[in-house]
Design a protein around this nucleic acid. Structure first.
Length: 261
DNA sequence: CGCATTTGACCGGCGC
DNA sequence: GCGCCGGTCAAATGCG
């Protein structure tokens, strides 16, 4: 019964002090949520609509995952590496850190941009079960929010998909999840009961400012797609959304319905 | 004991 | 140049 839409990076831009320019995913009329989580392909609008923009760059922190496959994280390689590095001095450790950081991103070099999308869920738990195995690699306090943002990486080798999870400071029951990148492997776990029984997809990840303006957007326990579209129109009229989606995405409901069947 | 999480330090980008 | 900020790293710690 849950419904929702996914948008490209809709949540992150405003958090980093964006100027209101929001870029959103095109609707995914025939894309199930499973497919979304599995990652966009070149055939679908997710990647097709993903283009560079200063705001996005900023929202992404200006630097993205190194494109090098060997930079992917896995628990096994991690442990072996850390074992080796544990023998190193602090100086060496810092050298390694620098190397790690700089190797994926040279100045002037074009950054690999990963497709991203964000969505909001009404959930009691921060980390939603989406079928993939995630490893937490960081947590940061979110500005203007009492709730921290958690950073996760897919634990599968050579899969450098990341996700950020944070709670809305406007409504602590809302969890904003931002996925970045696409999985290059199958979902290791069943998607049955995805997100758990206490989770409801409530819609796109919208900036707190907008949520403030339109608290009714997320006030319900279940998201009404029709109202949602009307509200998206409202956003459009507000001039807050530039890449608004066409309103022909009813099949999202069906796609998401599969998710919970 | 092996793996995941926590957490403080670090890095680069950006604005002033 | 400096400080702020988002994102990442990795040692320390926790847990099964």
């Amino acid at each position: 019964m849950s419904q929702g839409l996914c948008y490209r990076d809709a949540a992150t831009v405003p958090y980093s002090g964006g100027d209101g320019h929001l870029e959103m995913f095109d609707p995914l009329p025939y894309m199930s949520f499973t497919e979304i989580l599995h990652g966009p392909t070149n055939d679908n609008p997710l990647s097709a609509t993903y283009g560079p923009s200063k705001e996005e760059e900023k929202a992404a922190g200006g630097r993205e995952t190194p494109a090098t496959p060997n930079s992917s994280i896995s628990s096994s390689s991690d442990s072996s590496k850390s074992k080796k590095e544990k023998e190193s001095s602090i100086v060496k450790h810092q050298e390694n850190s620098k190397k790690e950081v700089s190797k994926g991103k040279k100045k002037g070099e074009q950054k690999e941009r990963q497709p991203r999308f964000a969505f909001m869920t009404k959930s009691e738990v921060d980390h939603l079960e989406d079928g993939y195995k995630w490893r937490k690699y960081g947590q940061k306090a979110v500005k203007n929010s009492p709730y921290p943002r958690s950073y996760y990486r897919c634990t599968t080798q050579k899969c450098n998909v990341k996700k950020r999870v944070e709670r809305s400071f406007q409504d602590p029951s809302i969890v904003i999840t931002t996925y970045e990148g696409q999985h290059n492997h199958h979902i290791p776990a069943t998607l049955r009961g995805l997100f758990g029984p206490y989770t409801t997809l409530v819609g796109p990840a919208l900036p707190p400012e907008l949520l403030l303006q339109m608290p009714h957007l997320y006030g319900g326990t279940s998201f009404n797609l029709y109202n949602h579209q009307l509200q998206l129109q409202q956003f459009h009229e507000y001039g807050l959304l530039q890449d608004i989606i066409p309103h022909s995405n009813i099949s999202q409901k069906g796609a998401l319905g599969n998710f919970y069947n």
